[in-house]
Simulated scan of single mutants.
Amino acid sequence: MTVPLVGFAAGAVVALLVGVFGKVHDPTLAGTTAFGFGSVIAMKIALSIVVGVLAVLQLVGALWLYDRLGVRAPAWLGTAHRISGAVAFLLIVVVAYHCLWAIGLETGSFASGGSVPTRTVVHGVLGCVAIGALVVKVVAVRARRAPGWFLPVAGGLLFTVVVAVVLTSAVWYVAANGWPGSAGYG
Rank of each mutant, 00 (worst) to 15 (best):
S112G: 12
V93K: 03
E106A: 10
V166I: 11
V161T: 12
G52A: 15
I49T: 12
R145Y: 05
L105P: 11
A164P: 05
R68C: 03
T168N: 05
A111V: 13
V71A: 14
F89S: 05
F89V: 01
H123Q: 08
H98K: 11
R144H: 07
A176R: 09
R144C: 00
I103V: 14
G36V: 15
V138H: 04
V136F: 00
L157E: 03
I83L: 13
A73E: 05
L158I: 02
A96P: 03
L63W: 12
L158F: 14
A111N: 11
I83Q: 10
G148Q: 13
L90M: 15
A75E: 11
V122F: 14
P152C: 05
V87K: 06
R82N: 10
S169V: 09
K137F: 03
L91W: 13
F89Q: 00
Y66A: 14
T32K: 15
V71Q: 15
L57S: 12
A80C: 04
L90R: 09
G108V: 14
S48Y: 02
G61C: 05
R145M: 01
T168S: 13
L134H: 01
I92K: 02
F35H: 10
S109D: 14
A102T: 15
C99V: 08
V139H: 00
H98L: 15
Y97C: 11
G178K: 07
V116F: 05
F37S: 10
V166C: 05
A111D: 11
R144T: 06
T120K: 12
E106V: 11
A154I: 01
L157D: 05
M43I: 11
G124H: 05
A75T: 09
A164V: 12
G70Q: 11
A80D: 00
L47V: 12
P147K: 07
G114H: 13
V129E: 01
